[in-house]
């Protein structure tokens, strides 16, 4: 039983990181219907900036997170402005290829600047193990899960309660109607990219703290898993991405623990496929039949 609870904690840890990254995918998709393949690379660069902030400038922990998130928010907006905005009215597949291009570009840029060998992320949090009725929780796990949940609640409040948040929902609902209502669509899209990228960077920093390394291709697999999480929850729906992230994290850890480590990824994909076959728009997605 203890072993099971321990594995549950492990799953929660990965899941919260996937959820943070998945939010970025889902927000961008919700607003411009683009799978932002470069999101995994945003996460990777976020981790690199945190690494630099921690090793070269000896910043306090909160400043490391803040620097990385702000820089990535700016970079996210810049990417949208340079690479995606010119394609807003182009065929969607072209925009997708551009996103893939940006992803490959950022990956190789990192390879050129930082080189291929993994950098070791310094321990940002004091190391301590908490005992909770027979199960052990490390401080890193506790902080990772805690930070992820706090930021998710903040984001949810922001989207639901503030004016800009309402504008975001309006644009993702119907862009043309939003323009008619006097909403500045371009600014709203930029804001979405900023928020999504900042959360992606947060996910990246937490990921690199939890799994110690920072390297140019680190964004690929978590990016793909987070994307699956977003689709599983219903892409475009923020709470869906959070739910999807936790589900994927749990499924992955439990499969590794009790079924097979080598088939874990395959089982994650199989679950996704099965869910989509029965509920083609994801768990929280609304079913819409296309009309003539």
């Amino acid at each position: 039983m203890n072993l099971f609870l321990q594995q549950l904690i492990n799953g929660l840890n990965v899941g919260s990181i996937y959820a943070l990254i998945a939010i970025g995918y889902t927000m961008v998709y919700g607003i411009i219907k683009l799978i932002n393949f470069a999101h995994g690379e945003i996460m990777m660069f976020g981790a690199y900036f945190a690494f630099i902030a921690a090793t070269s400038y000896n910043m306090p922990v909160w400043a490391i997170f803040l620097t990385s998130m702000i820089i990535m928010a700016i970079l996210g907006v810049a990417i949208e402005f340079i690479a995606y905005r010119p394609l807003r009215n182009a065929p969607r597949l072209s925009a997708l290829i551009t996103a893939i291009g940006v992803s490959i570009f950022l990956q190789n840029l990192a390879l050129l600047i930082f080189k291929a060998d993994p950098k070791v992320m310094p321990k940002l949090f004091p190391e301590k193990i908490f005992y909770l009725g027979g199960i052990e929780i490390s401080s890193t796990t506790l902080i990772t899960v805690g930070l992820a949940i706090v930021f998710m609640i903040l984001l949810d409040l922001y989207i639901r309660k503030t004016k800009q948040g309402r504008a975001m929902r309006a644009v993702s609902e119907d862009k043309d109607a939003a323009i008619l209502m006097g909403i500045n669509v371009n600014r709203t899209i930029s804001l979405t990219f900023a928020l999504g990228s900042a959360l992606g960077a947060l996910g990246g920093v937490l990921y690199s703290v939890a799994y110690i390394q920072v390297f140019p291709t680190m964004g690929v697999m978590p990016g793909l898993k987070a994307f699956i999480a977003a689709v599983l929850g219903g892409i475009g729906i923020v709470p869906g991405a959070m739910l999807g992230g936790f589900i994927i994290g749990m499924v992955e850890t439990m499969t590794k623990a009790y079924i097979s480590t080598t088939w874990a990824d395959a089982i994650v994909f199989a679950i996704l496929i099965i869910v989509l076959l029965f509920k083609p728009t994801g768990i929280l997605g609304k079913n819409t039949r296309e009309k003539v």
Binding site: I228, W263, A266, L272, L276
Partner: peptide, 26 residues
């Protein structure tokens, strides 16, 4: 799978390809 649309079909095809690859690894 072909009744899925657009991006959903995209992710499902990625999924199948990955499952096939993992199968051949094992």
């Amino acid at each position: 799978t072909l009744r899925l649309r657009g991006d959903y079909l995209g992710i499902v095809t990625i999924g199948f390809a990955e499952i096939i690859r993992i199968f051949f690894i094992n």
